[in-house]
């Protein structure tokens, strides 16, 4: 038997501590603890309800230590059963950092790549997609979305052609911060979309009245962005929200971020939420929200009341 030196012991303890932390945060997917998945209405393909955003969080440029740190965040995401990763040409170096991290992780098959087209020039859809794919170091995206409805008519036409020819699997449009909802509604009514991305969280709930019911009616998958309002919602809850209600554990929530995420993804129209983070422990927390049953309408109302009262 090999002699155990001090370094091996430290590694052993560190691994044990990491495993214990992962379990405590509820972020690890194991055969008996699989994350909740919801079907994409247009195909019935199942998608884990917690995805990952990359705005700000993955924009670290050529800073090697920070790139490696983001790789660990992505590793924790996949370890928790995560699938959908969302980025955009607008996010600085995020696509490139993501590609680097995916390379290091061997491009896991479970990755559902979601990117965007972000240019006023309606003739640049394919050209920009090729640049984005090169940065992700992938051949094909699973989902391409028109970023913030920018020149959406021309881009959607090309994206539909690309989908028909198998260059992309799903197409959609995005908005955020509650902007241009009227126009988004028109697009959802008039275009054949697989996905729509919008802002939805316990504070920003305007989409509940028209857009989310319309998504269900039209069979469009919904990606909820800004679930933590850029972090400010979680900061507020953790600073002044006090202890988590005792009943939260019954719905598998061990902290405020999980309560918020589980509330979002338990809306019948929402397919997944895409929180962004730079920290492995926060990623494990986020992925913990995908474990366990989703609450029903009655329990959702209770969760919302608790969040609003905090």
């Amino acid at each position: 038997m090999a002699r155990m030196n001090r370094r091996s012991l430290i590694k052993l303890f560190a691994a044990a501590a990491a495993t214990a932390t992962t379990w405590r945060l509820g972020g690890a997917a194991t055969p008996d603890r699989q994350p909740v998945r919801k079907p994409i209405p247009s195909s019935n393909e199942a998608l884990t309800v917690i995805g990952m955003g990359t705005w700000q969080s993955f924009n670290v440029g050529s800073d090697r230590p920070l790139r490696d740190a983001r790789t660990e965040v992505l590793r924790a995401f996949f370890a928790g059963g995560g699938q959908l990763v969302d980025s955009s040409p607008m996010y600085g170096s995020s696509q490139d950092v993501l590609g680097d991290a995916l390379d290091q992780l061997g491009h896991p098959e479970q990755c559902f790549s979601a990117d965007k087209v972000w240019t006023r020039d309606g003739d640049q859809t394919r050209a920009q997609t090729e640049i984005s794919a090169a940065k992700w170091r992938t051949r094909r995206f699973d989902l391409l979305q028109v970023h913030n409805l920018l020149s959406w008519e021309a881009h959607l036409e090309t994206l539909a052609d690309m989908k028909a020819s198998g260059e992309v699997r799903y197409i959609g449009v995005t908005t955020s911060h509650g902007r241009r909802h009227r126009e988004l509604e028109q697009v959802m009514r008039s275009q054949a979309l697989d996905f729509v991305q919008l802002t939805y969280n316990p504070v920003d709930r305007e989409v509940e009245t028209r857009l989310l019911p319309l998504a269900r009616e039209r069979g469009i998958a919904v990606i909820a962005n800004r679930p933590f309002r850029g972090g400010s919602l979680v900061d507020t809850l953790q600073r002044s929200g006090g202890p988590l209600p005792a009943w939260a554990a019954e719905v598998g929530c061990h902290n405020w971020p999980q309560l918020v995420l589980k509330w979002i993804v338990s809306h019948p129209a929402v397919t997944c939420a895409i929180p962004a983070t730079t920290r492995v422990d926060h990623m494990q927390e986020n992925m913990g929200a995908a474990i366990g049953d989703l609450p029903d309408a009655k329990l959702r109302a209770r969760m919302l009341a608790a969040i609003q009262a905090a």
Partner: peptide, 21 residues
């Protein structure tokens, strides 16, 4: 829609990354 943006929405990096720059 400009009024719906916060100042932080125009900054594409985390503070740590900006200082490390």
């Amino acid at each position: 829609t400009l009024g719906t943006y916060a100042l932080v929405d125009f900054i594409p990096v985390e503070p740590e990354v900006y200082f490390r720059l």
